[in-house]
Design a protein around this nucleic acid. Structure first.
Lengths: 110, 110
DNA sequence: GTATACACCTTGTCCATTTAGGTATGCGTC
DNA sequence: GACGCATACCTAAATGGACAAGGTGTATAC
């Protein structure tokens, strides 16, 4: 079933990545994650919105109210310079981590 | 925070995998994870021992005191049938999850 | 008029990990 | 024989992210 639980810590990275091409509002970020992971990840709003506020508090995102394509008001988030740096660091960590764990999980040695 | 911090949820899988060739005691499992991940993961004992007790409570491990190669008493853990099944499921989840996230993190599409 | 998608939010709870200790044995070495 | 270090086990308190379960309101389609 979609809504498969997150490995804690990956959500922040995905949000930052989703914003790497320009501003998006929260709901659109959630949609992007679902689509970019081919439906494997379905971010719950109770995780998404607190995460956005957290990242903004840390100085990785800036926020601004604006109008969507469909003419509705929404809060748009944008990566700051620090956010871009953070994204790079988190991707590096993710890569290193998954390679290490995948190696362990596929090894044939005790 | 050191880059070796866990993505929550991966520790259980690694423990189960470490036991898939036969019994090991806790300290040896920690060592195996460090070695099998080429030093990327350094499991803290405050995470390791509670995890072992948790997995035992869930019926995925059995425990038994025995003597190590070096002649010391240690608590050996062994996979149960349910534990083996669980390991398989967790590896499947890990694979599916990391493929999805890695795809998202390397995509060039917004 | 009602269902669905959009778009935002919060409160309470759970629980894995971190932090920071503790006990005790055995081995090598200075 | 004192010291450090690896072995081998453990726990309690604090942290903090995700989950569950609510809530507001608008727009569109049937």
């Amino acid at each position: 079933m979609p809504g498969s639980d997150l490995y804690t810590g990956t959500l922040d990275t995905l949000i930052l990545k989703g914003l790497s091409w320009g501003p998006k509002h929260g709901y659109a970020i959630g949609r992007w994650i679902r689509d970019a992971t081919d439906g494997v990840l379905e971010i719950k709003e109770g995780a998404l919105y607190p995460a956005l506020h957290r990242l903004e508090r840390r100085g990785w995102l800036s926020e601004k109210w604006a109008r969507t394509d469909t003419g509705r008001e929404a809060k748009f988030y944008d990566l700051t310079a620090a956010g871009r740096k953070q994204l790079k660091a988190e991707i590096a960590r993710w890569t290193r981590y998954t390679e290490a764990v995948s190696a362990a999980l596929t090894t044939a040695k005790a």
